[in-house]
């Protein structure tokens, strides 16, 4: 468990160094995630400590969003001003995104299944 936590934090730390050094426009934990994924592929498996730490953290993922979410209270003026715009954008854009992604993937998967069927 402690070993897993050390691995996760080390990946994030190296990610931070890479982002700072190359002045990348990406968040450092994302670079850390890519590093860990690469390491897991090279290692051909997930060490049990890493799995334990990851699953532990991810099972409390929802709680971890709360402190930042409470920050909405700081933006009440912006929300009061742009509230209708924000809500419209969230609902419409989410619907369009679901429509495009679902429709497209459905077609692509069916097409691939037909192709694979012909090659078999």
């Amino acid at each position: 468990m402690l070993f897993g936590l050390l691995i996760l934090l080390s990946c994030q730390f190296i990610g931070e160094l890479i982002v700072r050094y190359f002045e990348l426009p990406f968040p450092s934990p994302v670079v850390g995630m890519v590093l860990l994924l690469t390491a897991l592929i090279v290692n051909k498996g997930v060490p049990s400590g890493v799995r334990q730490a990851s699953e532990g953290l991810l099972s409390y993922l929802a709680l971890l969003f709360v402190p930042a979410g409470v920050g909405l209270m700081v933006h009440y003026q912006l929300i009061a001003k742009d509230g209708l715009t924000i809500l419209t954008a969230l609902i419409l854009s989410t619907a369009i995104t679901l429509l495009v992604t679902g429709g497209m993937l459905n077609k692509l998967v069916k097409k691939k299944q037909v192709e694979d069927g012909l090659h078999d």
Partner: peptide
């Protein structure tokens, strides 16, 4: 903890 949790998504 969000930082290491993001890294953990690799698993």
């Amino acid at each position: 903890l969000l930082g290491p949790a993001t890294v953990a998504l690799a698993v």
